[in-house]
Design a protein around this nucleic acid. Structure first.
Length: 424
RNA sequence: GGAGAGAUGGCAGAGUGGUCGAAUGCGGCGGUCUUGAAAACCGUUGUACCGCGAGGUACCGGGGGUUCGAAUCCCUCUCUCUCCGCCA
């Protein structure tokens, strides 16, 4: 979330920049300005009265101690009115503060200057591409047919056990999942990321910290009996490691990676988007998360983009990198690069990674700060994360792009993990 | 699931109604000493908000209450730990 101070100091700029995200912030910003002013005014007044009250109480204490009971009782009588007005003003303050918070969480993050204008995915900017699209010819099969042919994934079984979007991986299919996870984690470690295994279920505070709550609870599975949420991405538990934390500046950047299953309700999705592995309710992903110095976070973002690029290149997948336009970006992001790989039989691009700089948006919610050497006051840090990578669509592309008459060719980097050069 | 205990500053741990934002120890930082280091000694060491400033306010798990005054008493919620049971 944007800090109140920031909004107060740059109200017009906030409105102007949020327009890039197709968000009309005028009304909310105006209300924030008004309420913030009222809040401070109220605090000022109530603090003065509290100071008076504290002083009186101390005096009464002294009087009782020195046995001047009559004088003490006289003084006591004077506190009643003060007490009443403090109570009223406190309530007023709390009311305003709550209202402010409600407004504050409605404002999306400010898009970076690099974000192109635009409403939909059509307006995203392709900034890089690589690899060669394979020529498959007439008999090319989509991955769901290949998965069935080689008995890699059983979608119907998942329906029976749970429901649509929860496939069962089997044999080489299951082995491929494990191979990819291990490959991604090994790569991350070699690039300086510390591996963590987080919980897959989080509480409300964590959901708030990374921005899923309060508004996007519809995307998460909710275990109501315990009021816990299944994670939609490892970003949530991993980033929340740093909730209410002040780190030393010299520890930055902090680089974490985690494998996790991810759970998404995906209410309202339909059609070709959900066919096969294209969109699932449960999927596997290796995530990378960084906590960075504000001066360095865009360098860090570039580093993450080149790291993810190295992964898709090693997997020999044709890819492109797009910079999301304002209208296609998430609520919390300041700048996002999506990675898409070419799915040769479906003949479409599939998003396999999303790498974002959240600047201080999450850190404000998390109260994640750092302290510069020798400085007293902590500053808000920047957070970033990215998929490295999400498995299902990688699997879809690998199956389709590498299909041959003899079977599915395994990319070289995965051969040691798979123990075979071909799946058949 | 049953029974009990507890939640205090970076950590450990006192404080059971009044100058308590909080003893003490450890850790951290600065200094003295030393060729350097250790030890010893001295000092310092939470966060947020309001205020131009002086300064003020809040915070001892969360919320509510009693009281002139609450870390301390009462209610309530949450969480943690221990033992028993069950169990990967």
């Amino acid at each position: 979330m944007l800090s109140l101070k920031f909004i107060q100091e740059n109200p017009d700029w906030v409105v102007e920049r949020l327009a890039v995200k197709e968000f009309d912030a005028r009304e909310i910003v105006d209300q924030v300005l008004e309420l913030y002013r009222k809040r401070n005014e109220t605090q000022n007044k109530v603090d003065l009265r509290k100071a008076e009250m504290n002083k009186l109480s101390k005096e009464i204490g002294m009087l009782f101690k020195s046995g001047k009971t009559d004088e003490a009782n006289t003084a006591k009588a004077r506190t009643a009115e003060l007490k009443e007005s403090i109570k009223e003003m406190d309530q007023e303050f709390d009311r305003i503060d709550e209202e402010l918070m409600e407004l504050q969480v409605q404002l999306p993050n400010i898009p970076s200057e690099l974000v192109p204008a635009g409403k939909t995915a059509e307006d995203n900017l392709v900034v890089d591409e690589g690899g060669v699209k394979p020529e498959l010819g007439e008999n090319a099969k989509p991955h769901w047919e290949l998965a069935e042919q080689y008995d890699l994934i059983n979608f119907e079984l998942g329906v029976k056990i749970t429901g649509a979007g929860f496939p069962v991986y089997k044999g080489w299919g299951a082995r491929l999942q494990r191979a990819l996870i291990n490959f991604f984690l090994d790569q991350a470690r070699e690039n300086g990321f510390t591996e963590v295994q987080p919980p897959y279920v989080v509480n409300e505070a964590s959901g708030f910290g990374t921005g899923q709550l309060p508004d996007k609870e519809g995307q998460m599975y909710h275990a109501t009996a315990d009021n816990l949420y299944l994670i939609p991405t490892a970003e949530v538990p991993v980033t929340n490691i740093f909730r209410d934390v002040i780190v030393d500046a010299k520890e930055l950047p902090i680089k974490y990676t985690a494998y996790s299953a991810c759970f998404r309700r995906e209410a309202g999705s339909y059609g070709k988007d959900v066919r096969g592995l294209n969109r699932l309710h449960q999927f596997d992903k290796v995530e990378i998360v960084q906590v960075a110095h504000p001066d360095k976070s865009y360098e860090v973002l570039d580093g993450m983009v080149s790291y993810v690029k190295s992964l898709v290149e090693k997997l020999e997948l044709p890819f492109r990198i797009v910079r999301l336009c304002g209208g296609d970006m998430s609520f919390t992001s300041a700048l996002t690069y999506d990675f898409e790989v070419w799915s040769a039989a479906q003949e479409r691009w599939l998003e396999v990674s999303s790498v974002s700089n959240f600047e201080s948006f999450q850190a404000n919610r998390l109260k994640l700060r750092f302290r510069e050497e020798g400085q007293k006051k902590p500053q808000v840090a920047h957070t970033l994360n990215g998929s490295a990578l999400a498995l299902p669509r990688i699997v879809a592309a690998l199956l389709e792009n590498n299909q041959t008459a003899e079977g599915i060719r395994v990319p070289k980097v995965l051969v040691p993990y798979m123990g075979t050069e071909i799946i058949n």
